[in-house]
Design a protein around this nucleic acid. Structure first.
Lengths: 193, 193
DNA sequence: TTCATTTTAGACTGAATAGTCAATAATAGA
DNA sequence: TCTATTATTGACTATTCAGTCTAAAATGAA
């Protein structure tokens, strides 16, 4: 029928995570996007809609992908406590990788929009709820497996792990020394001891 | 000599923390500021300089004030462990107060500027360093007082407490339920047990 | 080759942007 | 009261903003 796109919309979406993550939503201009993505103005509008549409697509894609991985790991067979540890170690390994870490900062840009964008706010609500449930169930399993003290407050711990994981990108942004992330996560995990 | 200002520059500075915290740095327009602050355009430029100047003044004023309070508490006589707890309880009490919490969100707006503003980046560097040292010394005292296990990694804990405290505003922004803050902080403090 | 369809390129728009300027109003000290 | 100094006001500018439109270039299927 017609010519095919000269770019891979999925790759461009990943790249837009980096750009929005670097400049923030309002801080990102169309020009930033066009130069960074290497596509034409009209291609952007035809493929993704407005700047806000692109931002929301990028945020949802990023979070859905991460959350799916985390939940899958939490529900995987074996030690639940080990699963939780690995989720955090995997996260800091991404944040230490110069190529991968850039996408993560779209989290902070998205959180900054929560007071102004009800769609994003609701999306975070749902994401946190799903993750909290998954962490909670994992903590139940950890107790059953005898790897988590019976006196631990699983509900509080689930919320804590949730928000601690969310805070990793902020720690990474503030700390040039990657060792800080190691220390930060190793202390987080002591809350399970 | 001449007439005096019709506004209190200190109060206006506090109000600008709220505005920048709500909209973010780039998301805040001059019009937002003028309407929110209730002062004239030229008054703003005469008193504070450019938008960026005002932002930096607000950020520095906010952080310096908070940090001074935290360090003073950490160096105060008595139980060092109690001091650390109180710092976190005080923080969430501010974040639960509708009138006080708004200013706090300038933290997130400021952190978002770290990659683009070397002055802010350096300021955070120094602030985190000062706080980390203060936390570390408090942890040393806590060990001396017999309230912190000898095997604890004080350096890692100091960094951890630092960044956990910094992450409180993000937790508050994402959680409508203030109980989440209680749970979050109560788990944080278990790292000292 | 033809043609329907889509991408691309770049000009264009009106609104909003940060910041300046000049004129007026107010006031504290002499 | 006078005057030097400052605050206030609102008009103004040049730039950048997101988004639209038109036309040319490209290309897959028939």
């Amino acid at each position: 029928m017609a010519r095919s796109k000269e770019f891979d919309p999925s790759i461009v979406l990943r790249k837009s995570m980096e750009i929005f993550g670097h400049y923030g939503y309002e801080g990102t201009s169309l020009q930033n996007l066009l130069e960074g993505l290497g596509i034409a103005r009209q291609s952007l509008y035809d493929t993704y809609g407005t700047k806000r549409d692109l931002f929301i697509s990028a945020v949802k894609h990023y979070i859905n992908e991460k959350t799916a991985t985390v939940i899958a790991r939490l529900e995987s067979p074996g030690s639940a406590k080990m699963a939780i540890s690995e989720i955090f170690f995997e996260a800091i390994s991404v944040l230490k990788d110069d190529a991968k870490r850039k996408e993560c900062f779209i989290m902070d840009s998205a959180i900054a929009q929560v007071p102004h964008d009800s769609e994003i706010a609701e999306f975070f609500n749902q994401d946190l709820k799903r993750l909290e449930e998954a962490f909670y169930k994992a903590l139940v399993r950890a107790q059953e497996q005898g790897e988590l003290g019976e006196q631990k407050d699983k509900a509080a711990l689930a919320k804590y792990l949730n928000h601690s994981r969310y805070s990793l990108t902020q720690v990474a942004k503030l700390s040039s020394d990657p060792k800080v992330l190691d220390d930060f996560v190793s202390v987080i995990l002591t809350t399970l001891e």
